[in-house]
Nucleic acid binder design. Structure first.
Lengths: 228, 228
DNA sequence: CCAAAAGTGTTAGAGATACACCCATGG
DNA sequence: CCATGGGTGTATCTCTAACACTTTTGG
């Protein structure tokens, strides 16, 4: 089955990096400086080194791009249509990453001439097949967010239930009933009320909450899901 | 971001080919004739050619291996730990395939010294990281089967409700209540009763059904899922 | 004082679960 | 005639969905 005569394409990784900004789902794009697709926006990425695992490569690129180390990162899938890169055969392995825009100031975000955040739902024209890759990443994000507590990756450690509800509304793309939402999300027993309140925001300041990941681990083992 | 100096690993595809046999979920394995892992069982696979898309390569390998053309085939993901192939760096893109053992006589199945079907839940020792790949493929299969009518890929065109229930019990790994199962599965409106009955089987022969894919397309567009 | 967001319960209906017996037939 | 798998209905309970007003406070 294996022989020593076989093709050796280039293999890259690309990252769809998502963040929540002002109640909108954003994706981080970089502006290409060179041909092909010079001047076009693209998902950040790079080549996989010979001695590194695929997700190591993704993590490395992610850190180079955003300066952030500990982030949620997951493989989306391989895209390898011949001709997707006009220079040579490049198979890319798409990844989905989430950064918390509240805790970290993302390096690239300040460097706006080269990298900036765009609405994930309506991105500008993208290089290569990155439009397709972005769509697939978004689909995966929605799927995962509706069954696992992915919001911990997007929100600050202490958050209000309104922030949480906005997260679900943005990701799922539908409006949710406030009372039903609170009832359900609290019923899982993995979100704890804090004694602290938000400062200097709305007319009335909202109670802060945190996600109790230990409680969640226990509940998950007992077969609980986290569907909204 | 792209340069012309970058690594070129080998890229292969591997297929976890599933089938339902005597009410058991089976996976097709081949016996390796050469080193490394000579004599070990492995998932069938091969290298991606320079001018073919990834899923084309998977489809080609699948046909070479099983003689079957039209099958359900979907990407599971890329596996690329350095050293997973002792000879050189090989990144593999795992695929999940389903063949219907009733309609097709799979070519490799008769050629038992080289390829045969094993229980998917307890496979023999496998070459490379194929154990991990098989686990991931099984997980994906379970996930998909519990929300989409995947059974059409496993069962003959005309099937009994008992066969259908067995399918779900095998894939989901839990016993289901007969009455509740029938109520629910029929409530989707995508399974039609036929006037025909099974021949020469059980004491009492069971009514045959078929999946109405046109009706399902309509229902799906209306937002229906197919969860059990 | 008022605009704006926070917070809070109840009810009706849909869907899920639990459960047991008779029927038809081949051997 | 009996062992075997085929087929059927109901009651209860849980979960979901719909729905509106009071509270607080910064400007």
């Amino acid at each position: 089955m294996y022989s020593y005569q076989h093709p050796h394409p280039a293999v890259s990784i690309d990252c769809a990096i998502f963040g929540l900004d002002e109640g909108e789902l954003k994706v981080l794009l970089i502006e290409r400086k060179h041909e092909p697709f010079k001047g076009r926006w693209a998902l950040p990425g790079g080549f996989v080194e010979m001695d590194e695992d695929i997700d190591e490569a993704a993590r490395r690129e992610l850190e180079e791009e955003t300066g952030v180390r500990k982030v949620f990162l997951e493989q989306v899938g391989a895209f390898g249509a011949p001709g997707r890169d006009p220079r040579e055969r490049v198979i890319t392995i798409a990844h989905l990453a989430i950064v918390n825009l509240h805790d970290h100031k993302v390096r690239a975000a300040s460097d706006a001439s080269e990298a900036s955040w765009f609405p994930a739902a309506k991105p500008p024209a993208l290089a290569f097949d990155h439009r397709k890759i972005l769509e697939a990443s978004l689909a995966k994000l929605r799927d995962k967010a509706s069954r696992e507590p992915l919001f911990v990756e997007f929100l600050p450690k202490r958050f209000t239930l309104t922030q949480l509800q906005h997260f679900y509304e943005v990701v799922l793309g539908e409006a949710l009933d406030k009372r039903n939402f609170r009832k359900k999300i609290m019923s899982y027993g993995a979100i704890k009320e804090l004694e602290a309140f938000e400062v200097g925001k709305a007319p009335r300041s909202a109670r802060l909450h945190r996600f109790d990941s230990k409680a969640w681990t226990v509940l998950k083992k007992a077969g609980r899901s986290f569907a909204i």
